[in-house]
Simulated assay, not measured.
Amino acid sequence: MHVVPLPALADNYIWMLYDDAGQAIVVDPSEDAPVEAALTQHKLTLRAILLTHHHNDHIDGATALRARHHVPVFAPNDERIAQATQHVGEGDQITLDAPAAHFRVMAIPGHTRSHIAYVGEGLLLCGDTLFSLGCGRLFEGTPAQMLSALDRLSVLPPDTQVCCGHEYTAANGRFARTIEPHNRDLATRLQQVAALRAQNRPSLPVSIADERASNPFLRIDHDAVIAWCRQHGATDDRVSRFAALRAAKDVFRE
């Protein structure tokens, strides 16, 4: 399976998956034009659309794509996603014949109340829940919900490739460096990201293993993160530590 992040809007990625027979899936199409251009360029046939949550910058292109290509649209059960043709939730399985692909659905509320992820084909398609070196804002969920979601994602197989919705890695890394300034894995990741972005290349996908080694939101139980959280008013409760990290990131300016 070929995995291509299609840049859209200011910093979004639409994920396109396709096989050697030219059968394609797109995930979170914020716009239809980048998808149509990629379909034409690679001579692909669109077979399905997967949506992770209701925000317009993840679903706005689905209406035109669905009408034009007559494909199913899988989405969480949320009345705000009018484009959905099939609602899916925790534990559901999606099996597609063309391209041959299988995904397990995980409910991961926090960024929004109905956010889901799709796991399969060695990929984690996680929208705005887990970012490289960061995580999503809490628009509708609680710190406890988001921490639980991140805990679940962090124990996926270490070689699982994280395909998230935005190119936020460099900015997230600047915050992460203030939490763990002596983390060598983080320093290495930041060097890699800087080199990629200097060539206008995506910093994604990235492995779960790399994120566990360098993303402070997946490192709530590591000594350096615990110490930082204590210094910033958190108790020894894991949710309190996560909430302190997320609140600091919300106002972080370098």
Rank of each mutant, 00 (worst) to 15 (best):
V251A: 11
A33M: 06
L204T: 03
F131S: 05
A33N: 08
I14E: 00
A82C: 12
L124F: 12
A107Y: 06
V225L: 07
D210A: 15
D20T: 12
Q93G: 11
S30L: 01
G141F: 01
L153F: 08
D57S: 08
R137T: 02
L245C: 12
H232L: 14
I14C: 01
V225A: 03
L156H: 06
P34M: 04
L147D: 02
A21F: 10
D11T: 14
R184F: 13
D19L: 15
A117Y: 05
I220W: 05
A38R: 06
N77T: 09
R212I: 00
I208M: 12
C229P: 07
L17M: 04
Y168I: 14
Q93A: 14
A37T: 11
A75F: 07
H115A: 02
T45N: 10
A38Y: 01
A38N: 00
A195D: 12
F74R: 04
S203L: 01
V35N: 01
G233D: 07
H111P: 04
L6H: 05
A247I: 09
A24P: 02
R219P: 10
R184D: 08
F139T: 14
R152L: 14
G22D: 07
C164E: 03
H69L: 14
T95D: 04
H232I: 13
C229G: 03
P72W: 00
E180C: 12
R212E: 15
V35L: 03
H166L: 06
G91V: 12
D11F: 11
N77K: 06
N183F: 00
H111D: 04
A170G: 08
R189T: 02
T112K: 00
L39H: 03
D250C: 10
H115N: 01
C126S: 05
R113I: 11
N77E: 12
V73H: 03
V73P: 05
M16Q: 12
T45L: 04
V162A: 09
T188R: 13
W15Q: 05
R113L: 13
V71S: 07
N200G: 10
A8L: 06
G136L: 03
L124S: 04
V26D: 01
V73S: 04
V71W: 06
T235W: 14
Q161L: 10
I108S: 07
A84N: 11
A8T: 04
I116K: 02
G127Q: 01
Q83D: 15
R104K: 07
L186C: 01
A144I: 10
P157H: 07
A64Q: 04
R246K: 12
V27G: 02
A84T: 11
A248M: 13
A209D: 02
D210H: 15
K249Q: 15
L204S: 00
Q161C: 05
E121S: 13
Q191P: 07
T169A: 08
